[in-house]
Nucleic acid binder design. Structure first.
Lengths: 231, 231
DNA sequence: TAATTTATGTTGCATATGCAACAGATATTT
DNA sequence: AAATATCTGTTGCATATGCAACATAAATTA
């Protein structure tokens, strides 16, 4: 497991855990790793869930697809981030989502459920892990609320605007890079791809934003914030 | 505090906490109660957050409003449920939402932050509380993901359908009662009220559902599930 | 380099939806 | 009961958006 330590150090779940304890802890958590090819399936909707995943490398897409082929990209996660933690902590048995490996990737699985439930005579780091997890899930909660905010907007333009403004706040630079191409951004914002392109072009014409590929520059934050006030 | 015990017993945060410990625990958590009138403000967007609220009686609306007056009803909570827990656990300083007391209500505030951070030489129930909180937040996480699912639908009709189907699963009866009137449901699903009424009427005409006021009967789950397949 | 695939932008069209205005029903207050 | 306020449904209209089809650009593969 030594080989992964430089990654595990960035994992928020292990914050304030002594590096020396890491190995025995991973053992206690039944840690196992698994590799995936590009575009392979990590977990199908309906599959049993019994562990939490940590992305050691690569990028995963958390997706919800309906029978009609509509695809909703819930989120995209990369190295050092977790998935499945809410299901395990809420004691959900079957996955409501499908997870794809968007790139070649490697994942470490840990048995966090055991840590919450059985393992009473707890190792010293158990409480630390649970507290870290609390913070991680609470933050994910806020991210979901943010996304509800985008999706709640009435127009595509406003969805784009609120997403970009949020990214601007997160990335703290004038030109932001988003992790999606147009298709993926459309799936993430749950709008039609061509309608998305249309709106982006309009917003460029109106000097609200500039972009090439997945790099966006916001020219007028004020206007972007008050899109529907001026009509 | 004795007077509230019958309510506090239903609060998931206190699951598996001995009733005898409850009083001293509430003291340790700095519990205080406060009453609110109908339609009063419990917390304004931007206010400092330093405690978690427990609804002892009444109903609260968690709302996000933008400058243009668009109102998004994130969720409505009632007796025995919590609010603010994600903000406290994620260490967010200022509330991103406004909370209204939709009815006369009474709220108990507890200092959960102290419990997570300082209070190291912890009382026996601390770990129990944190584990309970983990489960509560994880479940809220899933509820938010569910809502993302509604809002992600392209048409109003599908938003309504997925909301009703979800409620059907939760309530487990043929006629479900929803906690919203039309205006509120529109705010919750982020659609226009009159457009909502229009779609509901259409769905009734198509023999998909029946309703009077806030009671809905689903006549054809199958069709409701596959709304956009048949066109 | 050429060939092929993938990503992005554009446009026309049919439809859905926000909005405003109104009407009737229901609930609340006087 | 009467008066008032609130809730719900209906409709016309302008606009936004999904969708399909196509064009071009960019990236990938042969």
């Amino acid at each position: 497991m030594k080989e992964y330590f430089h990654i595990l150090k960035q994992v928020k779940l292990f914050d304030d855990i002594d590096s020396n304890d890491l190995n025995s802890m991973l053992h206690c958590l039944g840690a196992k790793t698994k590799k995936y090819n590009k575009n392979s399936i990590v977990c199908l909707a309906g599959d049993n869930i019994n562990s939490i995943g940590i992305v050691l490398s690569g990028t995963l897409d958390i997706v919800k697809e309906d029978i009609c082929g509509n695809r909703s990209l819930i989120s995209r996660i990369s190295t050092s981030h977790l998935f499945g933690e809410a299901f395990v902590c809420a004691e959900i048995k079957k996955s409501p989502v499908t997870i794809y490996s968007a790139t070649k990737s490697e994942i470490m699985y840990i048995n966090f459920k055991k840590l919450i439930t059985s393992c009473r005579n707890s190792c010293t780091f158990h409480n630390r892990l649970i507290q870290n997890m609390l913070k991680i899930i609470a933050k994910k909660n806020l991210m979901l609320t943010e996304k509800l905010d985008y999706l709640g907007k009435k127009s595509t333009k406003e969805k784009i605007a609120s997403y970009l403004i949020n990214q601007l706040a997160l990335q703290q630079k004038s030109t932001i890079t988003i992790p999606y191409n147009r298709n993926e951004l459309a799936d993430y914002l749950n709008v039609n791809r061509s309608a998305l392109s249309r709106e982006l072009s309009k917003m460029r014409d109106e000097k609200l934003i500039e972009f090439q590929k997945n790099k966006f520059t916001i020219l007028n934050v004020e206007k972007l914030n008050n899109l529907d006030i001026k009509k």
